[in-house]
């Protein structure tokens, strides 16, 4: 594999995200770079839409290459990578036919004998997959797999960055995640102090309180801390 070329391609993709870009153009450039730098013969990206994969980009629009992508409706490497959220590598006719009887005949018929599919991961799930195909039955190295995943990650960012949340929205989300976590820890402290509980038991009590009051955990945590402010458990406070 051409490491510095691959790195360069990744950098170009990341640079294009900061400009106002067109997603299709960015993805097309990315899959073309994959083909050149990863020493594969074809590459394509499929994205999940209501459970099924749709091809969104292909390194070439030759009929054999398009078949590689379009044939993956019910089974195939990208389908597996998408569903299992892990990279899938299968090399050689026998292995291909054993794993995907229908898809493998299309793939072999189009002249390809090795495939590596990497999931497009976003927030603990997969939104699609990047497939890299070789005509020769040559395995992918550990480094190939790492870089393929980096390309897949970059494709994910390209796809999601256009409709992604604004900076303000991200800043607010970050703030709310942090504030929620802080409130939950503080509420555990309040409950531990008031009821002589361990932090683990205090957490259980906090959770059941939230359930009983039909409140989100963090909202309930804020309430618990506010209650402690109104009525500290110390009754013989020194005069203010």
């Amino acid at each position: 594999m051409d490491v510095s070329g691959a790195a360069h391609a990744l950098a170009r993709a990341s640079a294009s995200m900061t400009d106002h870009h067109d997603v299709s153009g960015g993805l097309a450039a990315l899959v073309r770079s994959c083909v050149v730098t990863m020493h594969v013969d074809s590459a394509g990206i499929l994205v999940g839409a209501s459970g099924e994969l749709e091809p969104v980009s292909s390194a070439s629009h030759g009929s054999a290459e398009l078949d590689l992508l379009h044939a993956q409706v019910a089974e195939g490497p990208c389908v597996d990578a998408f569903r299992t959220d892990t990279a899938v590598e299968v090399v050689g006719r026998e292995n291909l036919l054993a794993r995907w009887p229908t898809y493998a005949s299309t793939m072999i018929g189009s002249g390809f004998e090795a495939v590596l599919a990497s999931p497009l991961r976003w927030q603990h799930r997969s939104i699609g997959a990047l497939g890299l195909f070789r005509r020769a039955d040559v395995s992918f190295s550990a480094e190939d797999i790492v870089f393929a995943q980096a390309f897949a990650d970059m494709a994910t960012l390209l796809i999601l960055s256009t409709e992604g949340p604004s900076t303000e929205a991200l800043a607010e989300r970050l703030d709310s995640v942090l504030s929620d976590r802080i409130a939950i820890e503080q509420a555990k402290g309040v409950l531990a102090e008031r009821h002589g509980l361990t932090m683990a038991a205090a957490y259980d009590r906090l959770v059941s309180g939230a359930v009983d009051h039909h409140a989100p955990l963090a909202t309930w945590a804020v309430q618990v801390v506010r209650d402690a402010l109104r009525s500290p458990d110390e009754l013989d406070l020194p005069p203010a």
Partner: peptide, 17 residues
């Protein structure tokens, strides 16, 4: 996390913000 738990305990002890 312990710092915020301890903060909660102090809130309950003295009723301050």
């Amino acid at each position: 996390a312990e710092i915020h738990q301890a903060t909660g305990m102090v809130v309950a002890q003295v009723g301050v913000l």
